[in-house]
Each structure stands twice: as structure tokens, then as C-alpha cells.
Write a protein that binds this DNA or RNA. Structure first.
Lengths: 229, 229
DNA sequence: TACGGACGCATACCAACGGTATGCAATCCA
DNA sequence: TGGATTGCATACCGTTGGTATGCGTCCGTA
């Protein structure tokens, strides 16, 4: 079914493009789609280029014409999966306006997005190892992590005190890591429904704790502004 | 220096063992040590078995005599690194008794342990991809994650309410993920000292939030015990 | 509309790697 | 002191990621 859909859109998109460009784009799509499927199912190491090009019904010549190698193709898949997740989450929080409410909505949306098998495998589980940690962080910077930054910014700037950018980044990294781990724990649970409820309760509780401090007007001891020499 | 140390302890340990057993244990150690070094420096995929056996001054025959393959050797390295981390953290929290104080001590110790290059690379970055997520979780279950479970148990059972085991596990997974991410953010920072201070401040604040709720006697809405049909 | 060049891709090949099969010498046990 | 077993080296194989080369097709241009 995925194949028929892919075949259907062959030549059908990118209206203002030449015949060649359409063929070329179609080939790239076929490669990325096939790679995404195989990487998700079998993982990076267990997926051979022969399997990918065979599934995409092209040859290695085509692959190496468009991508510099296996890792570059993986990166294309990674970006596609990340963008899909980002779009899904952004859409979910678009309506809300209150910071804490927005955080709650983002939490739910993030938790759902992280369930996607492709996201789990390609981004969370194998992303750091395949891309290398540096490139992994760069990629996340402008996708799922960007959302977390945004949420944290809204929530923590709601208090009386202001946090500088490195401090916001630190909070965001912590929450991002927590959310990824939470997503895995949900996806791996025999009862994802109940597991998801537990995670929402737990993080909701943590957020409530923060809110309590903020509402109490408790000072945050930012090490950057706290002098203790 | 590591090599001379390894050479020195050749035949020098495992007192009550036969000559053969000592030789055997010595080669296993040489293999794991060499593998640990190379896996840490170059990563799993970029480290060839030839490089490992050459560094350990044995041959592939020896490797495959002791381990079933590359992945099994990796797992041995993984366990060694994890045990070292666990021991280090356990020692640091051994003195304290008060739950919140213990949590703070564990946080600091965990943050330091996660800085170890071997731990970062072998456990956090490449562990899930190389071992597969299932085996990765099993391995963590009885090492670094076990500590987090213990801490969470102490802290959250300090309140008036009791949490069931799945809920404790959920909290622990969240914190564990947060700590790993925090460790990476510290290690990748150009100024690890300052980054570490930020992380401690952030997590300290989160813990303070939780404590605030606990002290206020706020009910935790456990989805397992909250009926809403 | 003919044509030279560029583009998209297929084919054939290679080196490196993980893994296996086999052999042999040192050690242990009888 | 012999045979059995263990520990390991050597030689080999299939697969894999990557490269070199060649050819057909489409495009811009005059």
C-alpha cells in the first residue's frame, strides 16, 4: 500500500519542475522511504544498502548519486522523522495560550509523538550512535528540542525572576531527556495506556511542584548570578 | 601506562587458580581493556576486531574462544563500565541518611560518573544501539538505574502517601533519563564546571518543588488508584 | 530541430570486516 | 606418563559499504 501510494505520486508532484527533476525527486523519495522502513524495522547496522536499493527498485549507483553514503541517507531519514514529530507537536499546542496549560498539552503531544516506531528507533535509540553525538545534537537543536526550549521558556519566564539563556537550555535538556526516556518507558510497557497515564501523572506532579515554587515567589538560585567566592 | 599495569598484573591475581586459568583470565582482561579503550575512543562501528586483538596482543582465535562475537565483547565492556559507575555512586551516598540529602548527594555523584568518557560513549551514546534496546534496559536494570530506583523510593516514600511499584519505576525512568541527558550536556559544554553548577541548580530546584508539595501534604493523583470511569 | 554536454543511473568491481573451520601446543588429570 | 582437554593461532569465506566506469536520456541553445 505504501508502494502503490509511492507509485501514484510518481511524477505527480512538484508541478513546476522539469521531467528530469521530477524523476530525480521521485527516486530520492523512494530511497528515503525505503530506508526509513528498513531502518525502523531492522535498525541501521542490520540494514544493507542492497536491501534499501532493492526495496526502492533502484541500484547503488542511484543511491550514491544522491547521497554521499549510508550515513547521509540515514540523516535524511532522521530529518524527515524529526520534522514529522515537530509538526505533530506544534499543531497540538497551537491552540493553548496559558504557559502551564501549554506545557501540559506539549507533554501529551510529545509523549504521543515519541511512540512512533520510526521516531523511537531512528531518533532516540540509534540516532546518537549513528550520527555521532555532535551531529545528533545539531539536528535535534532545530526540531524536537526547539519545542522544549520554547515551552520551558514560557513556563519559567512566567515567574517573577528571569533566567539567562544557558540556564533555560539546561532546564530544556533535562526535560528533553526526561521526555525521551518517558516515551521509551511507555512504548516498551505491555500496557502503554496505563504507562502513559503514569508518565503524565508523574511529570504533571513535577510541573506542579515547580509551579508551587513559582507561585510562592521562591527565588531560583542561578549559579551564574549567585556570588560565592 | 595502562599497558604496563595490565602486564604487571599478568599472572599476579586470582591466587587460588591454576596456571591455565590465570592465563585465560589474563587474556580476557587484555581483550576487555583493549576493547574498552577502542570503543571509547572510536566507537563501536569504527573499531575493528583486528584492531582490538592487535592491541590486546592476541588473535581473533582467542577472542572467539572467550566471546561469541563483537557484540558479546561489547557487552562485557558495558558491564565493566556500568559496575564502575555504580560502585562510584554507591560509595558517595553511603554516608548520608536523610532522603533529600541522599538525593542531592546521589545527584552530584551521578553527574560526575556520567562524565567518564567510557560511560558516555559505551553506555549512554552507543549502548542502546549496539545492544538493542531490550538488552540495554536489562543491563541498566541492575546497575545505574537500580540506584535511581533506590533514591526515588526513599524520597517519594517520605511523604504521607505511598506509591506502588510501577509508579516508582515511572518516576525513576524519568529521572534517569533526565540525569543522563544532563550529564551529556555537562560533558559537551565548553565549561563543564559552570554547566555542572547549572544542572545541580536546575535539578535541585525541581527536587525542591517536589519537596514543597510533599511538605504541603498535596495528594499525588496516582492513575492506578484514581477512579474516573 | 539538431546537437553537445550534463545529468541520472546501472554495472562491475574492490578492500575491509565479522565470523568460521581447522590445527596444534601447552596444561591438566588419570 | 599418557590421553584428553583447554587456549589460542592460522587460514579462509561471505557479506558489506564504497568506488570507478560507462551508457542512455533529457535539456538548453543556436
Amino acid at each position: 500500500m505504501s508502494k502503490s501510494a509511492a507509485a501514484k505520486r510518481l511524477l505527480s508532484e512538484i508541478p513546476g519542475a522539469s521531467r528530469r527533476q521530477q524523476y530525480s525527486a521521485s527516486t530520492r523519495r523512494a530511497l528515503v522511504d525505503a530506508a526509513a522502513r528498513l531502518f525502523t524495522e531492522k535498525g541501521y547496522a542490520a540494514t544493507s544498502l542492497d536491501a534499501i536499493v532493492s526495496s526502492a527498485r533502484v541500484t547503488k549507483g542511484a543511491l550514491y548519486h544522491h547521497y554521499s553514503g549510508k550515513q547521509a541517507l540515514y540523516e535524511a531519514v532522521f530529518e524527515q522523522v524529526e520534522q514529522a514529530a515537530k509538526k505533530s507537536i506544534s499543531k497540538a499546542v497551537a491552540g493553548t495560550k496559558d504557559p502551564w496549560e501549554k506545557a501540559q498539552a506539549a507533554l501529551t503531544a510529545f509523549l504521543r509523538a515519541v511512540q512512533d516506531p520510526s521516531y523511537r528507533r531512528v531518533v532516540v535509540q540509534e540516532g546518537p550512535a549513528v550520527l555521532g553525538y555532535e551531529r545528533y545534537r545539531e539536528q535535534e537543536e532545530h526540531s524536537s528540542f526547539a519545542i522544549v526550549i520554547d515551552i520551558v521558556n514560557n513556563v519559567l519566564s512566567a515567574g517573577t525572576w528571569e533566567l539567562d539563556e544557558p540556564m533555560i537550555d539546561t532546564f530544556a535538556r533535562i526535560f528533553h531527556g526526561a521526555l525521551n526516556a518517558a516515551g521509551e518507558s511507555v512504548a516498551a510497557d505491555p500496557d502503554p495506556e496505563a504507562a502513559s497515564a503514569r508518565v503524565e501523572a508523574a511529570i504533571g506532579f513535577i510541573l506542579a511542584g515547580l509551579r508551587s515554587l513559582v507561585d510562592q515567589g521562591v527565588e531560583f538560585a542561578d549559579p551564574a548570578t549567585t556570588e560565592n567566592a
